[in-house]
């Protein structure tokens, strides 16, 4: 059943070529499996782990290996017992620390999204307006960071921002500061790392949608008396909305749960949910609470995606 509606729309079949009953059936099967297999893969490796996490989040923490009590138990009387408790959720939602971590994560992700959008839009715009070969070169530069390990690039930033790193050295040399300043383990470093890491995810969808924009529309706007700046807000921005939405989703969602950058570049008071989940899992060995945190995060993000899609649909409707 999966994806059959999609297949009907996406793959027009030459009915004369598949007129026999058996070949048509085979073509149908082929079409479905093209969509079905990846979906099956996603289902297996997203849904199953998700269910496991969900199960852990409603169980008890115990001192054992694994450190959770089973949810399903065969009793002595051979009756299946289900041990479910939602106290982990109550604990997570009541604790100020967790709530603060959630809010802080959302804030950092939101600011990161905004910054990448502000930096990425002009970049994508510039690339899409660059003629010929240079466009490919610039495009390569955007994709270039992916050629190196993400972790390696974060460590490079740590080196750059350190007390005796080149950034401090340059500032000292220019006489802007008199002694090395603390750059690492600050909010600034977290934002820097986040914006740096997520920028390509913003630029690529933006580029795709700006590149599609029909330049005649801008000429038409100018012809009707619209100055370039106004034309940008009246024509370019609304018509590249899809790219903006896609870029924001691609940055915002992973940014909320980001663990590595705040852990390596943030200070001890940089409280983000990714780090809290890690601590609960590995330092505290409280799997149920960590799982509950993960589930709450998932619910919040799903809510955001849902909201954004609704806004987008409405915007499309209103035009």
């Amino acid at each position: 059943m999966l994806g059959c509606g999609f297949a009907d729309r996406g793959f027009p079949v030459n009915h004369r070529a598949f007129s026999g009953r058996w070949p048509r059936l085979r073509a149908e099967l082929g079409r479905r499996s093209v969509i079905g297999l990846p979906f099956g893969w996603l289902l297996l490796f997203f849904a199953v782990p998700f269910l496991i996490v969900l199960k852990i989040s409603v169980s008890n923490a115990v001192l054992a290996m694994p450190p959770v009590a089973p949810v399903l138990i065969w009793g002595h009387d051979r009756i299946l017992q289900i041990h479910v408790q939602f106290s982990n959720y109550a604990f997570v939602l009541a604790d100020r620390l967790y709530v603060a971590a959630f809010i802080n994560s959302l804030r950092v992700a939101a600011v990161t999204t905004l910054l990448t959008l502000l930096i990425g839009y002009p970049m994508a715009y510039g690339i899409s307006r660059t003629p010929g070969v240079w466009r490919n070169v610039l495009f390569m530069f955007v994709a270039l960071p992916f050629f190196t390990s993400f972790l390696l690039r974060v460590y490079a930033w740590i080196g750059l921002l350190g007390r005796s790193g080149p950034v401090n050295g340059l500032l000292l040399h220019l006489g802007l500061i008199h002694e090395p300043i603390q750059l690492l383990q600050t909010d600034f470093a977290v934002y820097l790392g986040m914006v740096y890491s997520y920028l390509p995810f913003m630029v690529l969808p933006l580029y795709a949608s700006i590149e599609k924009l029909d330049l005649t529309l801008l000429e038409a706007a100018a012809d009707l008396g619209c100055r370039p700046t106004r034309a940008f807000f009246a024509i370019t921005l609304p018509l590249t909305r899809e790219g903006i939405f896609a870029g924001c989703l691609l940055v915002f969602i992973p940014a909320v749960g980001e663990y590595v950058i705040p852990a390596l570049m943030g200070g001890p008071d940089t409280l983000m949910i990714g780090r809290v989940v890690w601590d609960e899992f590995f330092a505290n060995r409280d799997w149920p609470v960590a799982s509950a945190l993960a589930i709450v995060l998932l619910v919040i993000l799903s809510g955001f995606v849902f909201l954004l899609q609704k806004v987008q649909a409405q915007a499309e409707e209103a035009g």
Binding site: D214, T216, L217, E219, A220, A221, A222, D223, L224, G225, C226, R227, I235, P238, L239, G319
Partner: peptide, 18 residues
């Protein structure tokens, strides 16, 4: 163009789709 007393009808019509 935005200051000329001239208007144009484009071959593709260039209507604003949104």
């Amino acid at each position: 163009p935005y200051e000329r007393p001239v208007n144009m009808m484009f071959q593709s019509y260039a209507l604003f789709p949104h």
